[in-house]
Amino acid sequence: MSTPLVSRQRGPDPGGGAGEVLVARDITKKFGGLTAVNQVSLTVRDGEIVGLIGPNGAGKTTFFNCLTGMETPTSGEITFRGRRLSGGADRITKAGLARTFQNIRLFPFMTAVENVQVGRHCRTRTGVLSAVFRGPRHRREERESIQRARELLDFVGLSRVEAELARSLPYGDQRRLEIARALATDPGLLLLDEPTAGMNPQETRDAMLLVRRIRDTGLAIVVIEHDMRFIFSLCDRVAVLVQGAKLLEGSAEQVQADERVIEAYLGAPVVGAPVDGASGDAETRS
């Protein structure tokens, strides 16, 4: 793929350590008396895929929401390429964090290509006057935006349906479209929230290939996923969240071997019950 997928965002690091893209320090999020995320830290470096796993209700999506500005963390600090992130979701996306949603949130009545073009919004700056008078900037940006949107649709394999409404696409394609839309914002870090949820095995394999291809362009990725095959074959590092707190972080092998992870997913073993083979069951979604 010759597409220059990764943005101008990348480039010489303005600060921070060895290629650190995202550093989240002690993120805590409380909803009233409930602590959904408790002192979670996470570091993501250039070109790596970090997996985020944990049983349902562990606070994975809330953590994502804190990173992307959809929720304001109660405490903690997030830096992206050495700069502190603040402000709402739109400013954080503009800073270079793009996300997809657990339950797809496309613009259902816009066509596929329009959806991706919306992603270009924060990288274009045509103003009202230029748009009303079809000024040179409008025409140039419009041309570039549609061209980039088509490149991205081609990259995720949706060129043939560019004029279809988002809502009329098959489920797997909707997921890909959401990824294309996120990529259109020229992110420096892509956050995928359960990219294979509800997919059949074939679609899951395609999604894995797609995520790998995105990584190969040099983009850092954080992914929440329940499909352990997906996690263990793709992720360079895996963080396990249990009841809002980070239980452990390490390589796929380390996590797979850890008793506590199995325990978190399946509950503490009853005395005398066989523990062996239980890790296979961890793949099943609740």
């Binding site: 959809m70 996306t93 793009a98 949603f101 009545f109 919004h121 924060c122 914002t185």
Partner: peptide, 18 residues
């Protein structure tokens, strides 16, 4: 496009940097 996006899903529109 941004207006229509806001109408269709405001949260997603924000997440797209609008």
């Amino acid at each position: 496009r941004a207006w229509v996006a806001i109408r269709e899903d405001e949260l997603a529109a924000r997440a797209m940097g609008i």
